[in-house]
Simulated assay, not measured.
Amino acid sequence: MFLNNDKEYKGRIVGIIIIFFLLTTSCSLEDSELADQINNDNDEIVGYLEANNIDATKDNSGIYYEELTTNSTGTTVNNNDVLYILYSMRTLDGTLVEESSDSIAIPFYHNYQSVIPLGLDYGVQLMKNGEKFRFYIPSTLAYEEYNNTSFFGPFTNFIMDVELVEIKSKAEVYLEETEEIQTYLSQENLDEEGSIETDLYYKETQRGNGKSPSQHSTVTINFVRKYLDGTIIEQTNSSPITFQLNNNQAVEGLERGILKMREGGKALLIMPSRLGFDESLQVFPTALRANLIRDNLIFSSVRPFHLLYMK
């Protein structure tokens, strides 16, 4: 991360998710059209179930589900839990859209605002830890008429096989992230080269000769944002960004790091999700995130509960 002189900021890098129509089924369809589409989706799903002699239960939300593996002693799902799932996602004609690795459970925040398709969030509410369900999700609880993708067409109904692997609280997630940062610093021989203040790792890599920013300074920076595995999420290249500190325009970890710098300086920051994009938004299929960002339907390129490396 490189700190430059001040300019006016033209955008926002805060990790606030804005979804125009994907999380509410009435935004992109008129009421009469929505009612027709709900009926069409239901007819298509019921037709599929009947044709394949499947006995599925309809939930009040509009999804259908089968209980594939039950666990009567498992922990129930509560609002604001962090859920880790293994999954496969198909269309009704059997086309595989995406499936997770057997060893990598995908997290998302359960609060009816943090996952697409919305029908999945309704579905997991019915599950216990260790159970496997199959959900039949109508398009009106998924992507509606969205078709700017090669993954599926407009008004697609989905089948999702979901195993609920683990349920955690945010506090448990944050504690594990602190431990993960410590392990990473030790492995990379960084633990004695920088400093940690309330879980934010800071290492000055080039001392600046200019002035230090204050709490409300406007700053211009170049940066590279990565996950700890080296995957680049975002970088400015030759187009630095400008924004005002303490104005909800940058995540807390970045702002705290900048306040330690001087103009012309460079630094390395490693931050837990709570100082970055926190629960963010989870997207299934995960590969669709880039399309939704491109089409200005979501504004977070960072997956939920991921540590960030910024330079």
Rank of each mutant, 00 (worst) to 15 (best):
I298P: 03
I181K: 03
R289H: 06
E33R: 01
R303D: 04
S101Q: 12
S32F: 00
E177S: 07
I181G: 10
S169C: 08
S280T: 15
G119S: 08
R303P: 00
I19D: 13
S217F: 01
Y136T: 05
Y201P: 00
F151R: 05
I17G: 02
Q187M: 05
M261C: 00
E166G: 07
T220W: 05
S239T: 11
G153V: 13
F151A: 10
N4C: 10
C27R: 06
N296Q: 04
D93F: 03
V302R: 12
F305V: 02
Y84H: 13
E177A: 07
V124T: 15
I13C: 06
I19T: 14
G208W: 05
S239F: 11
N80C: 04
V162G: 03
E98M: 10
L86H: 10
N78M: 12
N209E: 05
I54H: 11
Y143H: 14
I167W: 12
T220C: 06
L126R: 05
N4Q: 10
S239I: 05
G230Y: 02
E99G: 08
S280H: 08
E180G: 02
S139Y: 15
E30Q: 11
E263A: 09
F223D: 04
G253Q: 00
Q282K: 02
G62R: 01
V165C: 09
D41L: 02
N52M: 06
K168M: 08
F305T: 01
T76L: 08
D121V: 03
E192M: 06
S61Q: 03
A171F: 00
K132G: 03
T183L: 06
S273Q: 03
S28K: 10
S72T: 06
L83C: 10
D295A: 12
E172W: 07
S300M: 04
R12N: 13
R256F: 06
Y227G: 11
A290S: 15
R274V: 12
F133Y: 15
R303I: 03
G230E: 02
R225S: 15
E33H: 01
L292P: 11
T75E: 02
L34V: 10
I232R: 02
H110N: 08
T149D: 15
G276Q: 09
T149I: 12
I54A: 04
T198F: 12
L200I: 13
L281A: 09
T70F: 00
R12Q: 04
S139E: 14
L3I: 01
I159S: 07
L281N: 07
E252F: 04
F155N: 15
L307V: 10
P272F: 04
N189V: 13
D121T: 05
